[in-house]
């Protein structure tokens, strides 16, 4: 059923993306703030310490489109990246701008659409807050804003890209942990970087979401992680739910047919 599985449209311009190299992240959260400033995203007002290392925004959500995770890990002293048995991992997470984006697939209003840069964007003038995309996203990225009703997530700064500027978070990032650019080129860069880190003995280094054959057809925003994805709160092997949609439609058709047939049987030979 090719019509439900159409991947990327042919874009006018090379597909854009993010390569977030967490081995360069200093956990400064400039990305979080720059994003909020640019997009006028409301701040969290609860102002309570989570106690989860230096992470007080906890997760991606309607009001946090970039989120920096902090993981304090006890590691064996031999680990080359450990100090005194402690390793502090920091990683800035964001919408993956999936090649096969479940959120976009399921959106009934067309509020979500694929831009000419290959990114996935919610149009706030269209979204009716049905919430379908929220349940569809295998990464738990997009979410509904309380009191507003609509859903929000990273737009990869669509308006900035249109203006020929890089996204606000990537621009701010002091150490270029967030790298923005043409996806193909970023993938090459990431491969080289991974090889380099492996050479340096960073055994745990791995690319996440880079592979165009993975469950979502490759992430438009992919990562270099120093540990397993789930350590960072990422699903280790997500799948776009609409992969199975053709099968589901078939089953549903079968069920509908069964229902009609069953009903017909109920009347069959019934006495008046």
């Amino acid at each position: 059923m090719s019509v439900t599985q159409l991947g990327m449209p042919s874009l006018g311009v090379p597909r854009k993306g993010f390569f977030t190299d967490t081995s360069l992240c200093i956990g400064c959260k400039a990305c979080e703030v720059a994003c909020k400033e640019w997009n006028s995203v409301p701040a969290d007002t609860s102002l309570e310490l989570t106690g989860e290392s230096f992470d007080n925004t906890s997760a991606l959500g309607a009001n946090t489109w970039r989120h920096v995770a902090f993981i304090e890990k006890q590691v064996p002293a031999e680990d080359p990246s450990a100090h005194d048995g402690v390793k502090w991992l920091m990683s800035s997470d964001v919408c993956k701008h999936c090649t096969h984006a479940a959120c976009l697939d399921v959106c009934p209003t067309g509020a979500l659409f694929r831009t000419e840069h290959g990114t996935v964007v919610v149009q706030q003038d269209i979204c009716n807050g049905c919430g379908y995309c929220v349940s569809a996203c295998p990464y738990g990225v997009i979410d509904q804003r309380k009191g507003d009703g609509r859903v929000f997530k990273c737009t990869m700064c669509y308006d900035r890209l249109e203006a020929g500027e890089e996204p606000a978070c990537a621009k701010a990032c002091p150490t270029k942990s967030i790298q923005y650019g043409e996806l193909d080129e970023l993938r090459e860069r990431a491969d080289a970087r991974l090889a380099e880190l492996h050479e340096r003995g960073e055994e745990g280094a791995q690319l996440y979401g880079r592979d165009p054959d993975n469950g979502v057809g490759g992430d438009g925003a992919f990562f270099l992680l120093l540990d397993e994805p789930e350590t960072y709160g990422l699903p280790p092997d997500p799948v776009v739910t609409t992969r199975d949609l053709p099968a589901m439609w078939k089953r549903a058709a079968g069920a509908a047919a069964g229902l009609l047939a069953g009903a017909a049987l109920a009347f069959w030979g019934a006495k008046k």
């Binding site: 449209p9 509020a111 979500l112 659409f113 694929r114 669509y158 203006a163 500027e165």
Partner: peptide, 23 residues
Amino acid sequence: HDPTGRHHAAKSRATEEHRARIE
């Protein structure tokens, strides 16, 4: 030519007209 409605056909007028404020 956007049969699945996931691309340009779904683009709204507001999206079309929005300009980055730095521009």
